[in-house]
Amino acid sequence: MPQVTLTVNGKSHTVDVEGRTLLVELLREKLRLTGTHVGCDTSQCGACVVHMGGDSVKACTILAVQCEGAEIATIEGLAAADGTLHPMQEAFREYHALQCGFCTPGMVMSAIDLVKKHPSGLSEQEIRDGLEGNICRCTGYHNIVKAIAAAAEVMNGKRSELARAAE
């Protein structure tokens, strides 16, 4: 049986897998990191988005064995050890950018990559375009877009706090 060694949220793991085991299965079933979700089988919904080497990827469309030596970050690893939320997590809460919460981990991980790839700022259209790979059925995206815009300003140092009152 193949074995894969990878780092997840800063911690190294060596795991027995099958050739066909997907990264998302490794995370959910072997490491019990169930924050990464599976919402479709056609690589479209984005509920499974994690970071691999800092880039957002769909964990349902990567074999676990392809992750040998990779640095994976999941929703569980975002907040600081003392529980302080990442600005993107905080913004989602502050702007009511989640309802049922199922798409949320993937949405947050995608949003962080989106902000990272646009260090000079993001327009509403760029945010909407950048969410092409994530489907939310609850929110109508309105508040997700607002949350990402606010978090981007904080992450890019253009704004110090997330409170909606600051708008």
């Binding site: 924050g35 907040a79 997590q89």
Partner: peptide, 8 residues
């Protein structure tokens, strides 16, 4: 939900 601790 934001920290991946939901229990679906």
């Amino acid at each position: 939900f934001l920290t991946g601790r939901g229990q679906y």
